[in-house]
Nucleic acid binder design. Structure first.
Length: 476
RNA sequence: CGGGGUGUAGCGCAGUUGGUAGCGCGCUUGGUUCGGGACCAAGAGGUCGUGGGUUCAAAUCCCGUCACUCCGACCA
């Protein structure tokens, strides 16, 4: 049976990946387009994934010492001009409120594209002493960036995210926090999203507007393109000076704090889709799947089938599994296709023959393998299997990714590597010209630096001595 | 922001040289089915994206505009 037969309404994943993506997000009812250009509605099935992400991540933040807070959506325009690089980076994409209450406003208000400026302003009021430090806060909110081209989850005018903002007494401590949160993200993406990510420092060109250093987490999509899935920034004293975040230190000296910020967004849902998905549609990691096990009664008109299915459902729910029975009056084949498209990790088929044998048929969405399991064992077998799927999905994604990482020692090799849908590792002298040259010839950008692997002798682009090892890739 | 494509029923589409709108799926009702997208019967559903223009007459031709989408440039 060809994969095409299953979900004919989805574009070919190998042929037209972007169309496949659009088809999948719309047809699985994760999202729909909003009435305003570039906006998206996150529908219940998509929002449930976000809620699962939030729940897991939020616990990790709290474990890392962070508290949640909420800062206002509207930010006085003047705040942005206080940090030169920051305003330059964000000004082009800020949406501004100029009228309210039927009158023109004295000062235009920006709809936050990110909150360093308001939060910095508030922190300057709250921090006086070294005893007030560190300050570690996170907020879950929406932000708005007026993008030219948009795509659901990957880039929309408005999106949901979390942004952490911290202040520390020393440079070392702030840098430590930056790396700590990078690792919190990494663990979360590995363990919960089953996403292998490459972490490292960004080049000057690619770093956050206003940061001293930006560290990114890059995931490889099925088409070999990179998706920046999270960032952690060391901001040094750039923002503390701009927003006057000062404290009296132990030595009675008045000092500026050192700040960090870190964020991830609903874009991660895009990463899940494009990393794990296949021709049949979504393949969701069990930990974030809104429904982990779908139970499909076969020959449901026959007595006792639905009852048994419901019985299994409640056993599974008691065992902590997000299980659901599809009792709709449709053919089993239709339901199989639908739930496969929606990426439910496990399917249970139960019909009269199974009930007779006290068993069910199980199918894994990730491998499409079927097996029969005794009904008595389900309460333990299903949670264990979900766990296995979670781990196998990460492994499978790692294998796919590692097969598509190549080394290059010339611009030509970088181009060939990127054209072959690979991540390309190469030596780099550190100059902007070489970075731009890669962009021009290969449409690829420096994703992250990986100097810890050993820096090659020469820059693959200009041949001068290399200072860094860089991963080049085309990116979303 | 440049280049291409598409807007006709909830979805996918057809609609010829301009002549007053159709198909498939879905939906509603009833019945038969049910182990990989079932079938029969009877129904409901559209000011053809939008604003102008040409014409006796526009889904169809012309101009504008908006949205979506694909390919680039800019960005999470």
């Amino acid at each position: 049976m060809s994969e095409k037969q299953f979900v004919t309404q989805i574009a070919d994943i190998n042929d037209n990946f972007t169309q496949w993506y659009t088809d999948v997000v719309l047809k699985t009812e994760l999202v729909d387009y909003g009435p305003v250009k570039g906006t998206m509605v996150i529908r219940p099935y998509g929002y449930a994934i976000w809620e699962n992400i939030q729940k897991d991540m939020d616990a990790r933040f709290k474990e890392a010492g962070s508290q949640n807070a909420y800062f206002p959506l509207l930010i006085p325009m003047s705040f942005f001009t206080k940090e030169a690089e920051h305003v330059e980076g964000f000004a082009p994409e800020v949406a501004v409120v100029t009228h309210a209450g039927g009158e023109k406003l004295e000062e235009p208000l920006a709809i936050r594209p990110t909150s360093e400026t308001v939060i910095g302003t508030m922190y300057s009021k709250w921090i006086q002493s070294y005893r007030d430090l560190p300050v570690i806060m996170n907020q879950w909110c929406n932000v708005m960036r007026w993008e030219k081209t948009t795509r659901p989850f990957l880039r929309t005018s408005e999106f949901l995210w979390q942004e952490g903002h911290t202040v520390h007494a020393s440079e070392d401590e702030a840098m430590e926090e930056t790396i700590k949160m990078l690792n919190v993200y990494k663990d979360f993406m590995n363990e919960t999203l089953a996403l292998p990510v490459l972490c490292g420092r960004k080049t000057e060109k690619e770093k956050f507007a206003g940061a001293v250093a930006t560290f990114g987490l890059e995931a490889m999509m099925r088409d070999g393109k990179s998706l920046q899935s999270g960032t952690s920034h060391y901001l040094g004293q750039n923002f503390s000076k701009a927003f006057d975040i000062k404290f009296l230190d132990k030595d009675s000296q008045l000092k500026h704090g050192y700040t960090t910020s870190w964020g991830t967004s609903t874009r991660m849902i895009g990463a899940i889709i494009m990393t794990h998905g296949d021709q049949r549609g979504l393949v969701l990691p069990p930990r974030v799947a809104p429904i982990q096990t779908i139970i499909i009664p076969i020959a449901a008109h026959k007595g006792g089938v639905i009852e048994k299915a419901k019985e299994i459902e409640s056993v599974l729910i008691k065992a902590g599994v997000r299980a659901q029975t599809d009792v709709r009056d449709m053919s089993p084949g239709w339901k199989f296709n639908e739930w496969e498209m929606k990426g439910v990790p496990l399917r249970i088929e139960i019909g009269p023959r199974d009930i007779e044998n006290n068993q069910v048929v199980l199918m894994r969405r990730d491998t499409l393998e079927k097996q029969t399991v005794s009904i008595d064992e389900l309460a333990t077998a299903i949670p264990a299997l979900l766990d296995t799927i979670q781990k196998d999905m990460l492994k499978a994604a790692e294998v796919r990714r590692d097969a598509k990482i190549v080394e290059a020692s010339s611009l030509d090799e970088i181009l060939k590597g990127v054209e072959g849908q690979n991540f390309v590792k190469a030596g780099w002298c550190g100059c902007r010209e070489c970075e731009d040259k890669v962009k021009e010839t290969a449409s690829a950008t420096a994703r992250v630096m990986c100097d810890e692997e050993g820096v090659p002798e020469v820059c693959a682009i200009c041949g001068k001595p290399a200072k860094h090892k860089v991963i080049f890739a085309r990116a979303y």
